[in-house]
Amino acid sequence: MTLLAQSFNSSAMRGHLVNKDWAKLTDTVSYDPPDEVKRFLARAVLVYGIPFQYLVPDERMLPTESVRFFFLDPGWIAIMIQGATSIGRLDAQDTVLDTTMRHLALEQAMVDAALVRGNGRDIGEPQAQAAQWPLTGFLLRSGVVDGWQGVEMKAYGADGVELAPLRIDRLAPDILLCIFNGKVAHMTVKQPPEGLHFGLSPVGNGQYQRLSLRKVTEKDGAVQPGEQIQKAGDGSRPIDAPMRSGKGRPTRVVRVAELAALFQQRLTELKQAPSVFTSGEFGVEMVESPGLVDFKLGAGNKNE
């Protein structure tokens, strides 16, 4: 850092150092390091290059199929930046100069940290002008990380506003690290959109059930067409899917006409049956949307 500073009005700065004129020293010092240095310090704020065992000292702190939320310690980050910029310090005067320079370095690194993701941002993703404390995030260790290559994460503050992601990285096949610009109060993890499909839930012995139904009539109050009106876990009776019989083994072939009749019967019981139940309504009822896990810090988690 001293070597960087000495390229700017060196004689004036050394005069202020000798006279211990700290106010004028601060006004004299200018901070404009090479882009490579800026990029390195910005990534350091987001703990790039930090050995994983420093982040998680014991494997028991992050067991399989778990998520751990965290705050980045601003004091720890500041000291790390100070250490990274201490190269070139030769004497006591350089130490005083570094005291001024390291604050400028940290301020610039926080601004540049918001740009680290660069072209890796998703369309519509919020972008911060500069990283602002508190910086928070989570570590997720799960087969979901390995199995869902396009898994989507969104985090929100206490005010419900979506937070800008500063870092989203897979540290291992099953470990994901995310850091957001602000305090996370609510987070969602969702299957990729291509996870949308037709489907039934297996119950064993070659049998399948439909656990949820969707509204297929016009808007009724706050319930929009396509929204679930019978959900898994709400106490409703699942619909057993009629399957074609095989020679002593399951065929995994659905009797579509019979299943459609069961859908129509249940919708009639719920007073949500359309006047005509066509292949379109059948398709809506068979849709399985991508899975979503909803985390609300300090509250129970909700799976949909």
Rank of each mutant, 00 (worst) to 15 (best):
G206D: 06
M101A: 10
K183W: 01
L25V: 05
A299R: 13
R60P: 02
P74S: 05
K271F: 02
P274G: 01
D122M: 09
V253E: 15
K215E: 07
V254L: 12
A131L: 00
L90C: 04
R102T: 15
G120R: 09
M1K: 01
L46Y: 10
N301L: 13
G221N: 03
Q272M: 13
Q82K: 13
A185M: 13
R121N: 10
L176E: 05
V45Y: 03
W22A: 10
E285F: 04
R244V: 13
V29S: 01
I79F: 03
D234M: 07
S212Y: 04
M286Y: 05
L97N: 08
P57F: 02
N303E: 09
E281T: 02
L200V: 08
A260R: 09
V189K: 06
D98G: 09
A5G: 00
E65D: 14
L25C: 09
S30Q: 14
Q207F: 07
W148K: 06
A299M: 12
G49P: 06
S30R: 15
A84R: 11
G206K: 03
R266W: 01
K302Y: 06
K302I: 12
R121S: 07
G49H: 04
N19P: 08
L17T: 10
E194I: 11
V256M: 13
Y31M: 04
A42P: 03
D94L: 05
R255Y: 09
G248P: 02
K231Y: 00
Y156T: 05
